[in-house]
Write a protein that binds this DNA or RNA. Structure first.
Lengths: 243, 243
DNA sequence: CTAAAATAGTGTAAATCTTACACTATTTGA
DNA sequence: TCAAATAGTGTAAGATTTACACTATTTTAG
């Protein structure tokens, strides 16, 4: 890496113009069985009144992921959740004020009906169903959002990520429903039961939940004995680590 | 996104300290049927004498990808090749001189025995086989490199990326060899023939190449009629877009 | 000149996985 | 008591993968 064109002796940081670096976090949740994303409505120039992905500057003493988690917590109050880096957007002119490099993250949270905090600088904060997003987003956020959704879909096929959206206990058909929401297609019930059970990542509980028809058994997501590491459930097929 | 904490009126860029942003490019090639990666040997503090991934500052008037392509061309003289964003590394303290955010890219080039340019600021530039890399790399470059290799492996399974490493004309067993090199495992000859042919991305030529045994037929990588877009060959199975 | 070695390429049966769909089970409510 | 609603199981046909044996065409060693 960096600047092997500069020696310690000759290096002078002030000679370089530097871009601003921000972190944007695309936050997904499941509300009433539908996939939603959190957007904030801007209150100032540029893009006054436009909806945007929440984000902000990084601090000099925090890592990118820490910045993303902080941003997320400021916005939703949520901590300790699933977050992963999506892509870094850095085209010239994407922000009219100055050169901005924006590291985008994806986060998944369990919906909590928590009150969303409307910051001083925004008109409003709101969950939008991904099937019904506002038309014009600020900056290049439309592109970022589209990419986030497509990444979420594809990662779902080979990771365990859907569980992040579920409560502690859930039924197998609820899990199937999440897959259908994110993938945007219907899955076969029998096949889903078979695969998810074979995968061995669910732990049966003896709790049931009653509803209109036959009561359903509740399951828990089994974690690795090591504690943190998660099993991988590949909905479609076998593969190695994916980026 | 960015700074909805700031209004146009109150915004003052100079109030913010800003990190430096660099682009690092992990450049792969195939030499004598083995996967290699390009490293430069540093000549100054910090990490004087250590091998490092080539990279440098971004200019204010170029996009991240443009910066990566420029960097690559400066380093190898290669243009118009496959390049893709890998990940952005931004931990505090990864560079002892200052806060540096580094956007890492992967590039694939056909080996050309071109003379590598040793810049003023490095002792040496060299291709290393991925099976025999130097032990200590500068900064966090060991981590970046390991991630690049793992990403390359997994992308190979669902993209057409291996063709970037081959000359215009090649035999099917040569292609298989690349897959084996990158995947690090042996593949079945018969199965490989079947799959690659079914995929329909190769164009038979009437040229043959002689060697020690039976001569082999040469093939060409078929491009989409649209010209640029490439077919996808999934070595292992069917999937959608992957990040 | 011939046979072995080397490399290229084809064929196929068994095992596995996927898909589609029918069936059974257990509850509520009319 | 039976229909509607939801949960859950079973399975046969088809598709794909895997492993491996076989055939083909050349060079090289003797």
């Amino acid at each position: 890496m960096e600047h092997h064109e500069e020696t310690a002796a000759t290096y002078d940081a002030s000679r370089y113009e530097r871009p601003s670096v921000t972190v944007d976090v695309v936050i997904f949740t499941l509300i009433e069985r539908e996939l939603h994303v959190l957007l904030v409505q801007r209150r100032h120039w540029p893009y006054d009144g436009f909806w945007a992905i929440p984000g902000g500057f990084i601090n000099m003493d925090e890592s990118l992921e820490q910045a993303a988690r902080r941003e997320l917590e400021e916005e939703t109050g949520v901590r300790d959740l699933y977050i992963e880096q999506l892509f870094t957007f850095g085209d010239v002119g994407r922000d009219p004020r100055m050169r901005v490099i924006s590291v985008a993250y994806i986060a998944l949270v369990r919906f909590d009906a928590q009150k969303l905090r409307v910051s001083e600088e925004s008109h409003d904060v709101r969950w939008f169903p991904v099937s019904d997003l506002p038309h014009d987003l600020a900056f290049d956020h439309e592109q970022i959002l589209a990419y986030a959704i497509s990444r979420l879909r594809s990662k779902l096929e080979y990771t365990t990520l859907a569980f992040q959206l579920l409560p502690e206990l859930f039924s197998i058909l609820e899990l199937k429903h999440i897959y259908e929401q994110i993938l945007g297609e219907k899955l076969d019930k029998g096949n889903f039961y078979r695969k998810i059970k074979e995968a061995g990542l669910l732990e049966e509980t003896n709790q049931m939940r009653e509803g209109r028809g036959r009561p359903t058994r509740l399951w828990r997501f089994k974690r690795d004995r090591a504690g943190d590491k998660q099993f991988v459930f590949r909905w479609r097929e076998d593969r190695g680590d994916r980026a």
